[in-house]
Design a protein around this nucleic acid. Structure first.
Lengths: 203, 203
DNA sequence: CACCTGTTATGATTCAGATCATATTAATCT
DNA sequence: AGATTAATATGATCTGAATCATAACAGGTG
């Protein structure tokens, strides 16, 4: 287990105490793999290092309902407090997964104040980010969503994208075509200044 | 302070330890009131009992950006780990607010394991719920969002609404007109069965 | 009771973004 | 370097949800 490398992709891991590290497993997953099934008893907490995991339910008619799409970081954090999973987890893309035995994780949270505080802060940050994202997705213009993103995720009215625009489009709930077009329009009309991956609002 | 009444509207409050209860204040807010300003040092954690609070930023051009709209429960939970607020909080609607002094709240989390676990679970549940909501808002049909809601928030492919449809529409990111129409359509075509506030998926 | 306010409901119209199609450029692989 | 795949564009078309308008209805208030 190359922790320094893992920490690079997921800073929270820096604060995982040694006792917990020793029982943590790193496993490869292949597209289509089942991570857990609805009803399974909770044995692990998971962290996506690479690839994509989807949390899924199926309705009566067999339609697949995606509850969450996770491309990095923890998922199903709420399983920490429960005994059984409430949905299926499938590997949607080949990659790497961290398995934290649930009992050891709980013990670490309970006995290690520093780790616990980091965990709480991490959850709170995620809540903050997701709430802003929901507000954003409730906006209906493409331009409004872009500006809201810059304003809520950026610094000094500017963001530097760390992902391809296509991925950004899907985070904004837009087709990539709409994103390209709207960026161009906003840039042409002088609302935005675009320099490679740095996009800033112009007063 | 009528804690039993408060707990009814916000179950988490049941687990607030006595030491913390004694220093908690309940205050009325009037539409337009400032709860805190960006840059203010963090003195309290807040819980909306009644009314609406909005977390807001302003961009260079003075446009108001809503980061979060809170109608019940805690907001700005991430301020627990910080020293200054990162946005403004305004009362968008007259109501009632709980003020938890931040130091006492941190102490309670640190020393009371039960309260702490409830807090962690609460955050995790919120994350779960918000992630599902984001996935839902990324769907583009009105029908898809309705079905996704029933499937992810309901039990046995059915939900009982505890809010007016108009409010549900806004949670779904739809105009209320679209919601009414789509519900009717789905009901007519036999996909949904609607009985007052109970809406269920039909196989 | 009459009155007012907000929710539920349905119709007509408009338009923004999804979709499909097609290039061009950049990145990745062998 | 050449080949293959993915990202970045941009155009044409079309559909579905927003918007505006109007009305029935419920719930609460004086």
């Amino acid at each position: 287990m190359d922790w320094p490398l893992l920490i690079e992709s997921q800073p929270l891991l820096k604060h995982v105490p040694n006792e917990l590290r020793h029982v943590t497993q790193c496993r490869n997953m292949t597209k289509g793999d089942t991570i857990f099934r609805i009803g399974d008893s909770v044995r692990n907490l998971f962290c996506v290092v690479k690839g994509e995991v989807q949390l899924i339910r199926h309705d009566i008619r067999g339609t697949k309902i995606v509850l969450q799409r996770s491309r990095s970081g923890f998922f199903a954090e709420a399983s920490l407090g429960g005994t059984a999973y409430h949905c299926d987890a499938l590997a949607a893309e080949t990659g790497v997964l961290l398995f934290f035995p649930i009992a050891a994780f709980r013990t670490a949270l309970d006995q290690n104040a520093a780790f616990r505080n980091v965990w709480i802060e991490q959850l709170a940050r995620e809540v903050r980010k997701l709430r802003a994202q929901c507000e954003r997705l409730n906006l209906n213009g493409a331009a409004d969503r872009i500006i809201h993103y810059i304003e809520s995720e950026g610094i000094n009215d500017a963001v530097t994208l760390k992902q391809p625009r296509k991925a950004w489009a899907s985070e904004l709930g837009l087709s990539h075509e709409s994103l390209y077009r709207t960026l161009k329009r906003l840039s042409d009309q002088g609302t935005l200044s675009i320099d490679g991956n740095k996009i800033s609002l112009v007063s």
